[in-house]
Design a binder for these strands. Structure first.
Lengths: 127, 127
DNA sequence: TGCTTGCATTGACGTCTATCGATACAAAGC
DNA sequence: GCTTTGTATCGATAGACGTCAATGCAAGCA
């Protein structure tokens, strides 16, 4: 099963569950650092909220008051973090979100674990 | 109702729901930046996973190969981000987690919204 | 009062990072 | 082939950030 607590290579005990070791902390910090820039957050949300799931770079760049190399740089960082991926199709390059990484982070931050939320809802519904 | 989508002052549409505007992106980026350091992540997890919910600084500092001012600096950043808070009691200072901020971030990152997860569980249970 | 301990603040230093202009590369059209 | 357009990479620079030693401050104790 994937995403279970405790295995070393995978991720992660959950913030509230247990103290992180150095390796887990370093790995997670990379991801959060990638999210720790307003330009990258806007890029990510523009990609993630796109119906169809894909966005051409040519649709992203003009939305910012920044140079094209700067946008390309931020996209590269998001991609290296495993948050998005891309593919070239002819002249254009398309980006899309990798939801697995986002959901891992989301589950890590939740102080009431996602499983508990679902369990609570289930209990409430069946009561 | 708090935490609902769409209001400007509050937070946030959800990454997948709609593109962020500049203000929302800047606000969220501050939070993620605070999480984007392995030392701060370890500090936060040490505080969050503590049974009783509180930790004395004197229990945090020796866990790191860093100077006491450095730890104090990181705790200050976490506090300024609204992730933790602290109180002095006599000689010692105690820190605890503010779960609201963490849960906001968790909900923001979830590609399948938390409400949907609960709704799905409810539907499944009542079916 | 003076001493000691726990924690925060200050100031300085090296490193990382966001940004840009210039350039390189890839694909399409001429 | 050459030119044009879209995107990535390179090199440089200003500012942000993590770290430390030194210092300051608050609280307890002799």
């Amino acid at each position: 099963m994937i995403g279970q607590d405790g295995e070393s290579g995978g991720c992660c005990p959950g913030l509230v569950t247990a103290p992180l070791d150095d390796v887990q902390a370093a790995e997670l910090a990379k991801l959060f650092k990638a999210l720790g820039d307003p330009v990258r957050l806007r890029l990510l949300s523009m990609i993630a909220s796109r119906s169809g799931g894909e966005v051409c770079v040519c649709d992203l760049t003009p939305a910012f008051d920044l140079s094209q190399p700067t946008i390309s740089h931020h996209l590269k960082l998001l991609r290296q973090a495993g948050l998005i991926d891309c593919e070239r199709r002819g002249t254009w390059v398309y980006y899309w979100v990798l939801p697995g990484t986002l959901d891992r982070l989301s589950a890590f931050l939740a102080t009431a674990r996602t499983a508990d939320v679902a369990a609570a809802a289930t209990a409430e519904a069946t009561a």
